[in-house]
Nucleic acid binder design. Structure first.
Lengths: 297, 297
DNA sequence: TAAACCTTATAGGTTTTTCCTATAGTGAAA
DNA sequence: TTTCACTATAGGAAAAACCTATAAGGTTTA
């Protein structure tokens, strides 16, 4: 029994005439006859009572057509739903992002996306870099906004943005007036770092290593905003990505450019290698890129 | 899109492995691959995410499998229902019958039938002979219990029973003591007939015509029981089929055999010519026959 | 690192199914 | 009786599904 046969039977029940039904089905009349006969044979009951001039439904036929119509409706609904997914009128896009970074770079892109694909549910997963690498390589996010370096070889990487890393020092710090700083001058400073496992912690350690010293870490936090507040309160100095720097009056550290080495971090979009990216996902990526190009964040 | 493909996809979603799923479907693995690819192409979305060692459902795939499973379930249910009809665990049998006649001859057959086919709904339609002829020729009854003669050429006829017609006279009537009667003696009698349109009315008129006179009809009723009561009350004489005669004490006429001509009526089962008779219908007919043969009524 | 292995996709040909045209068969209408 | 309208059957062409063999891609094992 195939859907084709259900459709044929339903049409025949509507038209009560093999020739007309066949025509509506874009089929030759004998083909319809054959299929109906085959169907009846398979079911073991006759569905239609052929009589000259008219065709009636048997008891079994009534039941059959009732149910078959419902089934066909459901199949049509299913097709339509799949089409909607294909046209992205419907779907889900799971985006992984670093907590603070995402809060800065995603907001301009999200409303653009929602406007173009109102049927797509956006799910944000905020995790540390290392957790996101795992989630993304397992397909638990469609795409993720991460920072380099990325160790997981399963991931395809699209560069998005390279941004400066600055050194935050307390107001009144002896370096505060310079505007720029050479990291080599900071060997003795008390550093405030993010906790291990966060991507930016590794970057920070890398910078010190490049400058040739092991930093003295006096405090660790899971949250870069806490780090900044601690710096502003005079607890130490810290590396801060440009986009996270504060512009308010109070609780704001002084930000110094680093002049003796390239202090940047690269934000990227990552997704599982070989994974089919939905139209929604590719669209979101290009929206992010254009937002970044225009500096709209 | 065909049911086969839905089944393949559902099985693949269950097994998460093309080779295993193909095996369970009694199919070579490439055939399954081909069908799934074809399905995905037709829908315009990929349903399965193939990755080494495992197969995951995409967003669209989840929705698809959900719905497809339901559809397949419904199709199975439909098949089962049709099988039930075929095995007559389910169905309907519409039996037309003459009001009084049916009340005598059907009762022994009905419980036998219900016992063998408890799932079949029995519908009794009681109508006059002429109405039943039309209903049956239109297929509004499956089979009908009628009396000859039948004018409608659309009907196939199976003889069931030939029964005597007797003449009912009031107790104390001058013929009452004879036990038998020659119709020729009854030319002057007052006759009570059924109303026109009832088959037995025609039979009654035919008997008088055969005996060579036009009966004097003093009363007409739609109900043969009323006719008998009227005879018992002394209003006249009437023809009564054997099986309808009363055996009680009160309100009982005297029944006389007719000796000067063959006074019988033939009860038959009639159905639309060329109509497929369900297993339920043929079974019912043979039950009726065996009831009649045994004289169980 | 290569070899073995497991899994899915592709190629090419065979079988099965569906479909078509032509036509027979069958009641109903003219 | 002939014609007409309709469905079923026959036989062959077209399409679909299926098969075997094998490629291609990864992972695991030696």
């Amino acid at each position: 029994m195939e859907l084709r046969q259900l459709q044929y039977a339903v049409m025949l029940a509507e038209e009560r005439n093999f020739s007309r039904a066949a025509e509506k089905l874009h089929l030759a009349q004998p083909s319809l006859s054959q299929q109906i006969i085959k169907l009846e044979k398979e079911l073991g009951v006759s569905l239609f009572e052929r009589r000259p001039g008219d065709i009636l439904l048997t008891f079994a036929g009534k039941r059959f057509i009732d149910q078959a119509s419902k089934i066909i409706d459901q199949v049509e609904l299913l097709k339509k739903e799949m089409q909607d997914v294909a046209n992205t009128n419907l779907g889900q896009l799971v985006i992984g992002s670093l907590p603070i970074t995402g809060a800065h770079i995603l907001p301009p892109a999200l409303p653009l996306f929602q406007q173009e694909f109102p049927g797509v549910e956006l799910v944000l997963v905020e995790e540390t870099t290392s957790n996101l690498e795992v989630l993304t390589s397992r397909g638990q996010t469609d795409i993720s906004l991460l920072s380099m370096p990325i160790s997981n070889p399963e991931l395809e990487i699209i560069p998005l943005l390279e941004e400066e890393i600055v050194l935050a020092v307390p107001p009144g710090h002896f370096l505060a007036e310079q505007g720029i700083v050479s990291l080599a001058e900071c060997q003795q400073e008390a550093f405030i770092f993010l906790k291990k496992g966060q991507g930016f912690r590794e970057i920070s350690e890398g910078l010190c290593r490049q400058a040739g010293f092991e930093p003295k870490v006096v405090f660790e936090s899971t949250n870069i905003e806490t780090v900044q507040s601690l710096v502003a309160a005079g607890m130490g100095v810290a590396f801060i990505p440009q986009m996270v720097t504060r512009t308010r009056r109070a609780h704001v550290p002084v930000y110094l450019s680093i002049c003796d080495l390239v202090a940047t971090r690269t934000l990227v979009i990552a997704y599982k290698k070989g994974r089919y990216l939905s139209k929604a996902a590719t669209s979101f990526i290009s929206m992010l890129k254009s937002v970044v190009e225009k500096g709209d964040f």
